[in-house]
Each structure stands twice: as C-alpha cells, then as structure tokens.
Measured scan of single mutants.
Amino acid sequence: MIINNLKLIREKKKISQSELAALLESSRQTINGIEKNKYNPSLQLALKIAYYLNTPLEDIFQWQ
C-alpha cells in the first residue's frame, strides 16, 4: 500500500488542488483521489508532482 503526504506538503506550499492539477495537466478530482488514497498515481504523474512541489518523491509517497 502506498501512503502519501501530498495534502500536507501541498498545503504547506500554499498550493490549491486546482492549481496543482493545472500544473500537472490533470484534474482536481485526480489530486483529491490521490490525497485520499483512493487513487495511486502513475510513475509519470508521481514524478511530475514531486517536480512541481520541489520535493523528493520519497517524501511524498511511501510504501507501507
């Protein structure tokens, strides 16, 4: 199971779900699903999230 700190990191950087979704060329619903652990992002999307949040991938997503 993958757990994530996306919501915590996103809020700390003062970025809304909609703003992050626009940067990622994704939907706000996708970001919401990832944050609620209802959806696991593809590797490509996970890497883009890490890039746009300027945060190491392993700080956002962790195996448990």
Rank of each mutant, 00 (worst) to 15 (best):
M1I: 11
M1T: 07
I2K: 09
I2Q: 07
I2H: 08
I2F: 10
I2L: 13
I3F: 10
I3R: 09
I3M: 12
I3N: 07
I3W: 06
N4P: 03
N4K: 01
N4V: 08
N4Y: 06
N4I: 11
N4S: 01
N4W: 06
N5L: 08
N5F: 09
L6V: 04
L6I: 03
L6C: 10
L6R: 01
K7I: 07
K7P: 03
K7V: 06
K7H: 08
K7R: 13
K7L: 08
L8Q: 15
L8F: 10
L8R: 14
L8V: 15
I9G: 02
I9P: 01
I9T: 05
I9Y: 09
I9Q: 04
I9H: 06
I9V: 12
I9A: 06
R10K: 01
R10H: 03
R10E: 03
R10T: 03
R10L: 09
E11Q: 11
E11S: 08
E11R: 09
K12N: 11
K12W: 08
K13R: 12
K13V: 08
K13Q: 13
K13E: 06
K14G: 15
K14L: 10
K14E: 09
I15L: 13
I15D: 00
I15M: 14
I15W: 05
I15H: 03
S16L: 06
S16E: 04
Q17Y: 08
Q17M: 09
Q17G: 03
Q17W: 05
Q17V: 13
Q17E: 04
Q17P: 04
S18D: 14
S18R: 14
S18A: 13
E19H: 12
E19P: 01
E19N: 10
E19Y: 11
E19D: 12
E19I: 09
E19V: 11
L20S: 01
L20A: 01
L20F: 05
L20M: 05
L20T: 00
L20V: 01
A21I: 04
A21C: 04
A22N: 12
A22M: 12
A22Q: 12
A22C: 13
L23E: 06
L23T: 06
L23S: 08
L23H: 10
L23F: 12
L24F: 01
L24D: 00
L24M: 08
L24S: 09
E25C: 15
S26D: 08
S26I: 15
S26R: 12
S26M: 15
S27D: 15
S27L: 05
S27A: 07
S27P: 11
R28Y: 11
R28V: 15
Q29Y: 10
Q29W: 11
Q29I: 10
Q29R: 14
Q29T: 12
T30L: 15
T30W: 11
T30H: 11
T30Y: 15
T30P: 02
I31C: 04
I31W: 00
I31S: 01
I31M: 03
I31N: 01
I31P: 01
N32Q: 15
N32K: 13
N32Y: 06
N32G: 08
N32H: 11
N32C: 10
G33R: 15
G33K: 15
G33E: 15
G33Q: 15
G33T: 07
G33C: 15
G33F: 13
G33A: 15
G33N: 15
G33S: 15
I34E: 01
I34C: 03
I34Q: 02
I34R: 02
I34D: 02
I34N: 02
I34H: 01
E35V: 03
E35A: 02
E35M: 03
E35K: 02
E35I: 05
E35F: 04
E35T: 02
K36W: 07
K36F: 06
K36R: 12
K36E: 15
N37V: 02
N37L: 06
N37Y: 06
N37C: 12
N37M: 07
K38H: 12
K38A: 11
K38I: 14
K38P: 02
Y39H: 11
Y39K: 11
Y39T: 10
N40R: 14
N40G: 12
N40E: 14
N40H: 12
N40S: 15
N40Q: 14
N40K: 14
P41N: 03
P41Y: 03
S42W: 04
S42P: 12
S42N: 09
S42E: 05
L43H: 10
L43V: 10
L43E: 06
Q44T: 12
Q44Y: 10
Q44L: 09
Q44D: 13
L45A: 03
L45R: 01
L45H: 02
L45T: 05
A46F: 03
A46I: 05
A46P: 00
A46Y: 03
A46M: 10
L47K: 13
L47V: 12
L47H: 10
L47M: 13
L47A: 10
L47D: 04
K48H: 05
K48P: 00
K48D: 07
K48Y: 04
K48A: 10
K48C: 09
K48T: 05
I49T: 00
I49C: 02
I49N: 00
I49K: 00
I49E: 00
I49A: 04
A50W: 05
A50R: 01
A50M: 03
A50F: 04
Y51V: 07
Y51S: 08
Y51D: 09
Y51L: 09
Y51Q: 10
Y52D: 00
Y52L: 14
Y52N: 05
Y52S: 06
Y52I: 15
Y52A: 14
Y52V: 15
L53H: 00
L53R: 00
L53F: 08
L53I: 03
L53T: 02
L53K: 00
L53E: 01
N54A: 12
N54C: 11
N54D: 14
N54L: 07
T55H: 07
T55C: 07
T55W: 05
T55A: 08
P56T: 07
P56E: 07
P56W: 06
L57G: 01
L57V: 10
L57Q: 02
L57W: 04
L57H: 01
E58P: 09
E58V: 09
E58W: 10
E58D: 13
E58M: 09
D59T: 07
D59A: 11
D59I: 07
D59E: 14
D59L: 12
I60T: 01
I60D: 01
I60M: 05
I60Y: 02
I60L: 12
I60P: 01
F61V: 00
F61G: 00
F61P: 00
F61L: 02
F61H: 00
F61W: 05
F61T: 00
F61I: 01
Q62S: 08
Q62T: 09
Q62F: 07
Q62V: 13
Q62G: 09
Q62C: 08
W63L: 04
W63N: 03
W63R: 03
W63G: 03
Q64F: 07
Q64H: 13
Q64S: 14
Q64G: 14
